[in-house]
Structure formats: structure tokens, C-alpha cells
Design a protein around this nucleic acid. Structure first.
Lengths: 214, 214
DNA sequence: GCGTCTGTTCTCGTATACATGAAGAATACG
DNA sequence: CGTATTCTTCATGTATACGAGAACAGACGC
């Protein structure tokens, strides 16, 4: 859905609950009680329920009838699936950009530079910018449906990123290099190279993260 | 989301409103008033609101703050995008099936046969079975994320199918033939042929429907 | 005659009260 | 002492009441 409203009670509830899931206040497997969330967001249960519904639609929660809203475990399989789907969809976007032959979108280059310039301790910002880098790629695929799907997935990618932002120096340098390489491939209109880069860029982390104890 | 509940007020509201959108009770561009929907589903406004939220998440409605829920127009561009996304995702599913080399899922063959045996006047059933045919293809792609995306899209595909179920005899015969050809290609493990069939199978209707006056 | 302003009305957004069903604890029985 | 059953408690699901903002219509001024 992702219809962003100005500043309603529902939005506050959504934001705070989502943050709570990301930062570990609501750990995976636990139940979010409506009264509890209601107190956290300082609103009544009605907007809380709507926020929970939206979060369930985005894959953060499982709504068990008469039981409540359980924070979903991100399974290893789901993680692999998620990155495979991204590879498929972003690969398509790369194809389209190469076909139009107008080079990489300028935001991608800007974001890649920004990420490289980031101090190592700013891991959260790195995750955030990474999301925007890939969003910039998708934004030029010319297909609103795929863009919406990508947005839906990026929520879960962010979630994983947060839980695994203890990325070492080498790994982050690698990510940045792959981003630069992708931008160059797109500029050259070399679809095959772009796909190859996306393949390693999106396959490796999936398998590394999947093996992580969680 | 697609969390199927047993038989709650929310489910009744969802089903009836959805049917109303499909059958034209709520035409595109019109506003669905909560009181009106509440009377239609014979439940109170609370479950109606939750149903509207879900329908908005699935792309049926636009929720305008302080205005109401407007039934979305399906634009020609959106239609083309939708079919392109399906081609991408179902093409991937075909690849996976061909790689595993276990042939087409038996349900696909069964559904294709069922569709061919259908009397011409049973257009609604044809649309329904068509959805299940493609769902059967997706079910074997081994990626839950892509399956969920496909389900989300199939709602809109059904909607378009309903609005355009004045398909002539020749067109339906063509669809059935393409389905059979797809099953055969999958059985042969011929990924390239399967993709080619999906290409025409999913590109043609998009452009035909996009040109339709609506 | 037209534009604007204001008042009314209608619908949505939120809060709260009530009903229903499930989970857990305590007790009784084997 | 262990197990089954029942009762209590508590959270969710649903209904309803209330307040706020927007659209529309009528009247007034230009």
C-alpha cells in the first residue's frame, strides 16, 4: 500500500511499531499486544490495529486470529528467496536502462559516492543509502508495478540490514566497489555485465546472512 | 497479505466489497462510503475499514485522507506494466521448472484440459481457471516471495478479466492452445520455448486490452 | 450577473465500551 | 503424583459514539 498520510495517529502507530520491530523492542517470535503498542504510540487501539494490518501486509507480522500479531521470523529460505526476487527484478531494470542507452541515473552515482565517503561507524546510514541506491535503479525501469514490489521488499531488506549491520570494513568496501561497477556497466549500456554484477552483489549476501546465527 | 480467515465480519466485508468492485456495483472512479459498504456487508464500520485497507493494499482502491476510498481506474499503462511483470516472474518460474527437469506440474495439465472442455458461455469460470492455471505454474517456482507477488497481481488480473470477459471464440481457443503448448514446453524442459510462449501469451492481451475503450 | 464568504451537513478519523473465544492456572480425580 | 477438567482472566474482534475537516449550497456584496 504505502499510502503515506501526513501525520495521523495511524502513521505514528505505524512508525513506532515498525521502529520497535527493527530495533529489537519487539523481537521475532514475540506477540505485539494492542494495548502495549497503543501505550507506546500514545494513541488508541483503533489506529494501532490498522498499523498492525499494514505491517502484516508488508510481511513484518503474522496475524493469528484470536491470538494476536506475531513478529515474523525471517527464515534463511525466505532470505534467499528475497534476494533471488530482487536479482530478477533489478536485473530487469538494468536491462531496460541499458536498452534505453541513457546511462545510469545520476542519483545512483551520487548515492554510491555518498556511501563511499561515509565513515565506517555510520552503519545505519550505509544501510539507508544502500536502500535508496537500489530504489534509484528501480525508479528507471519504467514499470510502476515492479517499483511497488521492490518497495515492498526493501522494507524487509532494511530489516535484515539492521539486524546484520555488523558488516566488516572489507565487506563494505566490496559493496561500494560493486555499486560503482554497476553504475559503470549501466553507463556503458552493457546489460550482461550489469546482470553479472547484480548476480554476485545480491547472491553473496543472501547466503552469508542465511548462515548467520539468529 | 492474503491471510485467509475463517468467517469473520471482516472477511464478509472484504468479499462483498471486492465482488462489488468486480461486478460494477462500485464503478471505477466512484467513492465507496463506509456506511454504504457497512450496510451491504451487514457489519459495522470497523471491519469495513479493515477490508478497505486491505483492498487498497492490493491496488483496488486509493485511500484519500478525509475523503474516502476511491475505486482505482486501471490505466492502460498499468495494464501493460502488470503483464510485463507477470512475464518476468512467470518466465522465471518456467526456467526453474525446466531446470529441475520434472516436467509441468500435473495441475497445469488438468486445468488446461478443464478450460478447453468449458462451454463458451462460461466466461467467468474461464477467467477463474485461467488464474489457477498461472498460479499452478508459480507454485512450483520454489520462491515464496515471488508466489506472494504473483498472488497480489492475480487479483488485478481477475479484475481486468471480468471487465473484458467478452472474449470471442477464436481468442479463447488461442489461449487454450497456448496453455497446452506451455505445458508441453515445460515437459520437454525447453526453457527457451516456454519463455517464447509466455511472451506472446502475456504480451498480446496486454496490448489488446490497453486499446479497449473503458 | 458573478464571485466570494459563510454556515450547514456529511463523512471520515479516533476513542471507548462490550462480546467472544482462547490460554493458563487451580483443583479434583484417578 | 500425574492428568484431565473447569473456571478465571485477559486479549482480540466488533459495535457504537463523538469530534474534526471538507465539500456543497445559499446568501450577500461587488
Amino acid at each position: 500500500m504505502t499510502i503515506m498520510m501526513k501525520d495521523s495517529a495511524r502513521t505514528r502507530a505505524y512508525d513506532r511499531i515498525r521502529a520497535g520491530i527493527l530495533n529489537g523492542t519487539f523481537p521475532a517470535g514475540s506477540f505485539i499486544e494492542e494495548a502495549q503498542a497503543s501505550a507506546l504510540a500514545e494513541v488508541s487501539r483503533t489506529p494501532v490495529r490498522e498499523a498492525l494490518n499494514q505491517l502484516a501486509a508488508e510481511g513484518f507480522l503474522d496475524l493469528l486470529p484470536r491470538r494476536g500479531a506475531m513478529v515474523r521470523h525471517v527464515t534463511a529460505q525466505e532470505l534467499v528467496d528475497l534476494y533471488e526476487a530482487r536479482k530478477l527484478i533489478e536485473g530487469h531494470a538494468a536491462d531496460v536502462i541499458c536498452e534505453t542507452d541513457r546511462g545510469a541515473p545520476p542519483e545512483m552515482r551520487r548515492l554510491a559516492a555518498e556511501m563511499e565517503a561515509l565513515p565506517l561507524e555510520d552503519a545505519l546510514q550505509h544501510v539507508e543509502l544502500n536502500g535508496r541506491f537500489h530504489a534509484a535503479l528501480m525508479a528507471h525501469c519504467g514499470n510502476q508495478i515492479l517499483i511497488r514490489m521492490s518497495e515492498a521488499m526493501s522494507a524487509n531488506v532494511t530489516r535484515i540490514g539492521f539486524s546484520a549491520f555488523t558488516i566488516d570494513r572489507d565487506r563494505r568496501a566490496l559493496i561500494d566497489r560493486e555499486h560503482s561497477a554497476l553504475v559503470e556497466a549501466l553507463d556503458a549500456g552493457d546489460a550482461a555485465r550489469a546482470r553479472a554484477i547484480l548476480k554476485v552483489h545480491l547472491e553473496a549476501p543472501a547466503h552469508i546472512l542465511a548462515k548467520l546465527p539468529r
